[in-house]
């Protein structure tokens, strides 16, 4: 590990001024960054520990929530307001990693964990994300876990966060502060597709700090679910995951949200399927048609073509279950 300095800050201003130092990195729980430092993939020379900042969950008049970037993943999933109003988010967080890691991980760090695959960690392998221009061994290699949507010839890694798939479905906004002022970005615009620059995962600029995530209130608390399919039943990254939320008006779909995990370089909001479903009857046939439309441009690699069918099935099954739910398990 490259040597570094360490500063724990208690004021945002201090974080922002230290964050402009060359080689500075913000430190959350460290569950991703410390690992990458040990592998010499990340080599910060100054760690600015921001776990003491933005540790609250606040609500607005309409029932929406602002979740501080420093709140631990476990604390989000345990918060009564999150569990009652955004059960999808609690479920997605609880589907990720292990209890130990969720106790350490912060919301900001979860959003900013690297989009990655096993080749990214292997210093014998070619990886455009680790070393731009060096090539991608995953595309012709073992790629069971890789992307089927939005990949490029340069990179097929997937964003591993479960939490972000729920946030994408819930229309969350990322609040950012930085040397040139503060700004907000929709979560769905925050992460990038790989294109020809897979070394850049997000739109965050140098020195910028995530301060909170904003969740607008919605009518989905009664019909929403997070389904994660993986190679073992717990403590594994998603092959495919589906965050789904429905609001019905009689038998018709008044409002629907769908996002997929494990399939792309970013949390994948299923806009095509949503558009196909709006105002339609909530029937399995329409769900299947919408899933088909969403996955129309999906491309499999040697080992992951199964994900295309799997994603469609999990979408349809999630929506069928949600539409059948009587007074709905939350």
């Amino acid at each position: 590990m490259t040597p570094f300095l360490y500063e724990k800050v208690s004021e945002r201003g201090d974080a922002l001024s230290l964050g402009t130092h060359p080689g500075a990195a913000y430190l959350g729980g460290g569950t991703n960054l410390v690992d990458l430092m040990r592998e010499a993939i990340a080599r910060p020379t100054l760690l600015v520990d921001v776990t003491g900042l933005s540790c609250k969950i606040e609500e607005d008049e309409k029932g929406g929530l602002r979740i501080g970037a420093g709140v631990k993943n476990t604390a989000v999933a345990t918060d009564r307001r999150v569990r009652a109003r955004f059960p999808l988010l609690a479920q997605a967080i609880l589907a990720g990693a292990s209890a130990q890691i969720r106790n350490m991980a912060t919301v900001g760090g979860n959003v900013l964990q690297r989009t990655r695959c096993a080749y990214f960690y292997d210093d014998e392998a070619h990886c455009n994300k680790r070393s731009p221009g060096s090539g991608c061994d995953a595309i012709g290699g073992f790629n069971r876990n890789h992307a089927i949507l939005g990949a490029s010839p340069a990179c097929a890694a997937t964003h591993p966060s479960d939490m972000c798939v729920a946030l994408a479905a819930l229309d969350a906004t990322v609040s950012i502060d930085g040397p040139r002022g503060s700004r907000d970005l929709p979560l769905t615009d925050f992460h990038r597709l790989p294109g020809d620059a897979p070394e850049i995962d997000t739109e965050l600029r140098s020195g910028e700090l995530i301060t909170s995530i904003v969740l607008p209130s919605n009518g989905f608390s009664k019909r929403s679910s997070y389904r994660k399919v993986r190679d073992r039943s717990s403590y594994a990254f998603a092959l495919v995951s589906v965050a789904a939320a429905l609001e019905l008006d009689g038998g018709r779909i008044k409002n629907v949200r769908l996002a997929l995990g494990g399939v792309a370089h970013k949390p994948w909001r299923a806009h095509v399927a949503e558009a196909a479903l709006a105002g339609r009857p909530a029937t399995e046939a329409f769900f299947a048609e919408a899933a088909e439309a969403e996955l129309r441009d999906a491309k499999g690699l040697r080992d992951n073509t199964f994900k295309i069918k799997l994603a469609k099935r999990v979408i349809v099954d999630s929506l069928v279950k949600l539409s059948n739910a009587k007074d709905a398990p939350r």
């Binding site: 360490y6 430190l27 460290g30 690992d35 760690l47 476990t74 292990s98 890691i101 106790n103 350490m104």
Partner: peptide
Amino acid sequence: QGACGACTVLVDGNRINSCLALAVQ
């Protein structure tokens, strides 16, 4: 690297993986 749990300890009663934690934190 956080994958096995052999290093689990309690901090203020909460379980964490001590291998992914910097002592200074």
